[in-house]
Simulated scan of single mutants.
Amino acid sequence: MDFMGAYSPDHLSFLMEGFWVTLKVAFISIVLSFLIGSIVGILRYARIPVLSHVLAFVVEIIRNLPLLLIIFFTYFALPEIGIDMEITSAAIVALTVFESAMISEIIRSGLKSIEKGQIEAARSSGLNYYQTLRFVVLPQALRRMVPPLVSQFISLLKDTSLAVVIALPDLLHNAQIIYGQKQSYVVPMFLIIAMMYFIVNYALSIIARRLEVKRV
């Protein structure tokens, strides 16, 4: 194992370039999937005729497909129907579609966890359905959703590594290029990328625990 050679300034700089791509793709996907997932989750909770059933059908299909298949479909199949995207955009779209379905279920479950007594009390005090949702149900539900949402965001960050199959120049992709140069770089590379993923994910876990403590 050649740690000195593997961790040369040039190699570390190249790894950081890939890590930046990983964080950028993850951040954009998290923001988009949270927005879309929240809208879908709220619409399903509202039980709007027809629309709720259509959304439920789409969400169940996406949730039961492998993320890798969605990545392949986005990058290789969509261009066949005229939707051509570069690698980074394809990765973001695939991750957003998959994670939106997951987050929508977290949002819907969080909303359903609010006791009916609170909803009835809000309605009896003069609030209409949407005011009750906005001022009573949603604020409480969001606090309860923090742990599962952060857990899903951590999964999303780790799932970005699957985009290596379409040559996304992320952390894992750049590490592969480095240890492809020399067999003795393999273990050092795996150790450092594991540490980098761990640091970010552990930080997110700490934030989630502190938010949970404040909620309690």
Score class of each variant (00 low, 15 high):
84 D>I: 06
86 E>A: 04
88 T>S: 01
88 T>N: 03
88 T>H: 01
91 A>F: 10
91 A>Q: 09
92 I>S: 01
92 I>W: 01
95 L>E: 08
95 L>W: 09
97 V>Y: 03
97 V>P: 00
98 F>W: 10
98 F>P: 01
99 E>R: 01
101 A>H: 03
103 I>D: 00
103 I>W: 01
105 E>S: 00
106 I>E: 03
107 I>N: 00
107 I>F: 03
107 I>L: 00
108 R>S: 05
109 S>M: 06
109 S>A: 15
110 G>D: 07
112 K>G: 02
112 K>V: 11
113 S>E: 10
114 I>M: 03
114 I>C: 03
115 E>F: 02
117 G>I: 09
118 Q>E: 14
120 E>H: 10
121 A>M: 07
122 A>I: 07
122 A>Q: 07
124 S>I: 09
127 L>W: 03
128 N>Q: 06
132 T>P: 02
133 L>P: 04
133 L>E: 08
133 L>W: 07
135 F>E: 08
135 F>G: 04
136 V>L: 04
137 V>R: 01
137 V>S: 00
138 L>V: 09
138 L>G: 02
141 A>H: 04
142 L>T: 14
145 M>G: 08
148 P>A: 03
149 L>R: 01
149 L>F: 13
152 Q>T: 13
152 Q>H: 02
153 F>I: 06
154 I>Q: 15
156 L>Q: 10
156 L>N: 12
157 L>E: 09
159 D>W: 01
161 S>A: 15
161 S>H: 13
161 S>N: 12
161 S>Q: 11
164 V>W: 08
165 V>G: 06
165 V>M: 14
167 A>T: 14
167 A>P: 05
168 L>K: 03
168 L>D: 09
170 D>L: 05
170 D>T: 08
170 D>P: 05
173 H>F: 15
173 H>G: 01
174 N>R: 04
176 Q>C: 02
179 Y>M: 08
180 G>W: 09
182 K>V: 01
182 K>L: 08
184 S>K: 08
186 V>G: 02
187 V>C: 00
190 F>M: 14
190 F>G: 07
191 L>F: 14
192 I>Q: 06
193 I>W: 12
194 A>K: 02
196 M>V: 12
196 M>A: 15
197 Y>V: 11
199 I>H: 08
199 I>A: 15
200 V>C: 12
201 N>T: 15
201 N>F: 06
204 L>M: 15
206 I>N: 10
209 R>W: 05
209 R>H: 12
209 R>A: 13
210 R>F: 13
210 R>N: 14
210 R>I: 14
211 L>P: 03
211 L>F: 12
212 E>K: 06
213 V>F: 09
213 V>M: 11
214 K>M: 07
